[in-house]
């Protein structure tokens, strides 16, 4: 079990009114921003269950949008986000699906990437899947995420590159759609790695997507 901090229950310092529905929403948006890590012009949010039912009253819609635009959870201007946002096309859908967590969202960016996550309470979040690949990212570590063609030796190639930077790996997870099919790997790191390292990973043969996900503040 991942050790949790006492500050998971005596923070965040945030704008109200709900830690799960407002701060959690901002943090889910921020994580999606960090994962996509590129400029974008269009975003769609699909809100599930309690997010869908009570999101309006908790500012969940404002929080998600503010997060993906880079606002932090204690920014008092989140309240007026709809009046200030420009040059971004955004929309919301509301769905009931009991197979999903009570506070769940899909964030679709530029019709290219779908990021699914839950707000699990007290402002804490979890990213469950990225483009259909299962993940378990909570934003407490800098994380290197890559997608590649499943083949032997990929883990050692990538970990060797990281090891050369003297960066310690906190955890490593990988999975694949089928043998020889699309695979994904995400590596939680004790300290962030530089863009040069990311470039090296990108240059590995059969790696087609790499993103360096910064941890949440």
């Amino acid at each position: 079990m991942e050790q949790k901090s006492i500050f998971s229950v005596i923070s965040p310092i945030m704008v109200g009114p709900s830690s799960s529905h407002t701060a959690g929403a901002v943090r889910l948006g921020l994580m999606a921003r960090n994962i996509y890590n590129n400029p974008f012009s269009k975003v769609k949010f699909i809100l599930y269950n309690s997010f869908a039912t009570t999101g309006f009253g908790h500012g969940t819609d404002k929080g998600l949008l503010a997060g993906i635009l880079g606002y932090q959870v204690d920014d008092s201007s989140i309240k007026n986000i709809f009046e200030t946002v420009k040059n971004i096309e955004y929309s919301y859908d509301y769905i009931q699906d009991i197979s999903r967590h009570p506070n769940s969202v899909d964030i679709i960016i530029d019709d290219k990437m779908t990021i699914s996550g839950d707000s699990v309470g007290a402002g804490e979040i979890r990213i469950n899947s990225i483009n259909g690949f299962n993940t378990d990212i909570n934003g407490s570590y800098d994380t290197l995420l890559l997608m590649y063609k499943d083949k032997p030796g990929m883990i050692s190639t990538v970990s060797e590159i990281i090891q050369k930077q003297k960066v310690n790996i906190a955890s490593l997870h990988c999975g694949r759609s089928s043998k020889g099919g699309q695979a994904s790997m995400y590596i939680a790191l004790d300290i962030p790695i530089g863009d040069d390292v990311v470039e090296k990973v990108k240059n590995i043969k059969d790696v087609y997507f790499v993103t360096n996900i910064r941890k949440l503040k």
């Binding site: 005596i10 965040p12 945030m14 109200g16 009114p17 709900s18 799960s20 402002g123």
Partner: peptide, 21 residues
Amino acid sequence: EENLRMGRIVACPTAGSCGIV
């Protein structure tokens, strides 16, 4: 009340319960 105005508070443990501790 500060919380419901989307004001700055400390979730403790949550925002809905921010006034107690």
